[in-house]
Design a protein around this nucleic acid. Structure first.
Lengths: 212, 212
DNA sequence: CATATGTATATACAGTTGTATATTCATATG
DNA sequence: CATATGAATATACAACTGTATATACATATG
């Protein structure tokens, strides 16, 4: 049954193609909740009912998009981190890698950023899962950094969480801005991260009784 | 023409009542884009066309909601700040005041948090406006603190921005969680803010060449 | 009282939506 | 070739949408 790549009607359609159609519609700053099943099907070039072959409904498609966005984003950041160990401008290159995902042709990151606090619980759960992956990887990185530099970090888990949330918040802000105006926002984000890391180290020295 | 408070049909309806109807619908974690004009009208107890007496469309209603949410939130925070000057647990009480807005009967803050990165540009512009108000007030507070404590702050505008974005991000996360599980999130947020402030002060001491 | 004005409603219409059902087509297997 | 199977489509339907138009009502003013 392999010969289905070709020239005529009734082609097999992959779920990925349906997802791509949805992303295409989302590119003009719409949120998933404004997409209709029929509209997505139309864009994908399939009949409305064919949609059901791939997803139970639009919500299920959305969760798949969020997962995909998270996976590919994590991969990109991990690559950026591997190129240099976390110190000096590793922060910058990670932030740049993150932001550069806003410019890719398939704007999956936009979905992730936009559905963070929207829609059914399943969406937010899915996004939260991705954020947690990030936090964990970042916390490990911070712990590794402790050993390397000798500077202890106060509550590395929290520092990682703060950085993650901040980067995503700034990413969402950057997504609303034309590509060539993002430079300053990257710089700002880098400085903010530095503040957090510096502060976490400073608090570690001062002692832990600063929470009241 | 004052006698319209009363017992029978064809009552005058205020725009506020229409807004309240929308908020009521939004309380079950729906985003504005899922509301229809007819549904809002139905909830407000008016005929569909009466909606147009108050707003051009649902988008205009939404912007009004965002503005209102921002105004009332700023007021609450300002009150919290006035009760104590910004130091020690002024941070905590501000964060608590912020989070407590999640529990009010009319959940306007939810709208603000949920429409941050959704919908038409007008929404995001409206939310951005509110965030900027916050940042400005907070930056002024940080500058005042500089004079009081003698500790300089590195890039107070950026520190204010970082804190603001972080608080809103944590607020959005807290909004998705039952009321009695928010305590820990408040604590986390307070510590994160402390990291930023501490870091900004520490960077001010170390010098400014840490941005590359 | 007459009537103008602002406010709310009723009816109607065309467009879209999600999905149930029946059908067509393409392929793989007997 | 016959035919079973899976994939895509066509048709249909009721529900809902935004809004245009016409109408009813309440109040204020003459």
């Amino acid at each position: 049954m392999n010969n289905l790549d070709n020239n005529a009607a009734k082609r097999q359609v992959s779920s990925q193609e349906v997802m791509d159609a949805a992303v295409k519609l989302l590119e003009s700053n719409r949120s998933v909740s404004t997409l209709s099943l029929r509209e997505i099907a139309r864009t994908a070039g399939i009949a409305p009912n064919t949609f059901y072959r791939h997803f139970r409904d639009v919500d299920e498609l959305t969760v798949a998009l969020i997962d995909q966005a998270g996976r590919s984003l994590r991969e990109v950041i991990r690559e950026a981190r591997q190129r240099l160990s976390l110190e000096k401008s590793a922060i910058r290159s990670s932030v740049e890698a993150f932001m550069s995902q806003l410019d890719t042709e398939q704007k999956y990151l936009h979905v992730l950023l936009r559905e963070m606090s929207t829609g059914p619980e399943a969406f937010r759960k899915a996004v939260d899962r991705e954020l947690n992956y990030f936090e964990e990887e970042l916390r490990d990185e911070l712990l590794r950094l402790e050993l390397t530099t000798g500077h202890k970090t106060y509550e590395p888990g929290l520092a990682a969480k703060a950085i993650t949330r901040l980067v995503f918040a700034m990413g969402a802000a950057a997504a609303d801005v034309p590509k060539d105006e993002r430079g300053p926002m990257i710089n700002q984000t880098v400085i903010m991260i530095r503040m957090i890391m510096e502060g976490a180290q400073s608090l570690a020295v001062k002692g832990e009784d600063h929470t009241g």
